[in-house]
Computed example of a mutant assay.
Amino acid sequence: MALSEQPAERHRQVAGLFTDRVRGTSGWDVPAPVAGWTARDVVRHLVEWCPGFVAAGAGVTLPQGPSVDDDPLAAWQVHRDGVQTVLDDPATAGREFTNPHLGSLPLAVAIDRFYTTDVFMHTWDLARATGQDDRLDADFCAELLGGMTQMEEVIRSSGQFGSRVEVPDGADAQTRLLGFIGRDPSWSPGLVGER
């Protein structure tokens, strides 16, 4: 299924897939592909950074659910629904988002560009950590990689991404994107501590 170009619908699709992976997780303390993280930390990251991002940039307060430590699924669902409500409401989606590093843009565009793409990429982390289907939309992988490659120096200096992992020539878009953001596409929980 191709992902929508509309921020509200794309979030619905991307967050829906992540929700499926959250529901399919039976062990929250298994290691994740991000060094030092567990499956629970993948959810924690998404639930915890976005509220400050939208509050600081647009003055929008997202609802707060239970702690990720107590109930990762409920914490994610409350957060996901709050973001979706913002995107579905033209009054909040069109609100100006201002950030000293990003300038000004509509809130829906800021959420789409920075948060929804983060959910998309972390879907692989959670799926890989928990042994679920980790395939991502190939076209969106290629689109993200194309945009990020043009800003590699800025991306690397932000500290938000690990060092590039080399992948084989001719690798598919998902593998190339994972390598670009510092993930080892062949990572598995069984390899943790064995390298």
Rank of each mutant, 00 (worst) to 15 (best):
A138F: 05
P106V: 02
T38G: 05
L73T: 11
F140R: 11
G16H: 01
D81W: 06
A110E: 00
E153W: 10
V54Q: 06
C50Y: 06
A142L: 13
L145H: 04
G16L: 00
G16P: 02
V83Q: 04
T38R: 05
H122P: 00
M1K: 12
S188D: 15
V42G: 10
P185C: 03
A110I: 07
L102R: 14
D134W: 08
A171P: 08
V192R: 09
L73Q: 11
P63C: 08
F140Q: 15
T19A: 07
D88G: 04
V30Q: 05
L144A: 04
P72H: 07
D70M: 14
L46K: 03
E194P: 08
P33C: 02
V34E: 04
F161Y: 13
L178V: 03
Q150T: 15
G190H: 05
S188F: 08
V192D: 03
L107C: 01
I111P: 02
V43Q: 01
E166W: 13
L46G: 07
L136S: 03
L177D: 01
P106R: 08
A55H: 15
G59M: 01
Q174D: 03
V109N: 01
G82P: 01
R40T: 05
F180V: 08
F114D: 12
L145A: 04
A91L: 12
P185R: 11
A142F: 14
A58E: 04
F18C: 00
L144Q: 05
G190S: 09
E96C: 13
D134Y: 02
A39D: 05
V83S: 00
D81L: 00
G159R: 00
W124I: 07
V60D: 03
F114H: 11
V14N: 03
D125C: 13
W187H: 02
E194F: 15
D88P: 10
D139E: 15
Q150R: 14
A32C: 09
D70W: 00
A32H: 01
H11K: 07
H101F: 14
P72L: 06
R21A: 06
T61M: 07
L73D: 09
W187T: 01
W76H: 01
L178S: 03
P51G: 12
D70G: 05
P66T: 10
L144V: 14
T149E: 14
D134F: 02
A56K: 14
L17P: 02
M148V: 04
G179C: 08
M121R: 11
V78M: 00
A32R: 01
F180W: 11
G27R: 15
H122A: 06
V43G: 04
A15Y: 02
L144T: 12
R80E: 07
G65H: 01
D88W: 06
V86Q: 06
D184P: 10
R128V: 00
V30N: 00
G36H: 03
V192M: 10
E9G: 11
Y115N: 05
G52C: 12
E5A: 12
P33E: 00
L62W: 06
V83I: 07
D20A: 13
Q64F: 13
V60K: 04
M151W: 14
I181D: 07
D88I: 03
V154Q: 14
P185G: 04
Q150N: 12
W28N: 01
A56T: 13
P189L: 10
V30I: 13
G16W: 12
F140H: 15
G147I: 05
G182E: 10
T98E: 15
P51R: 11
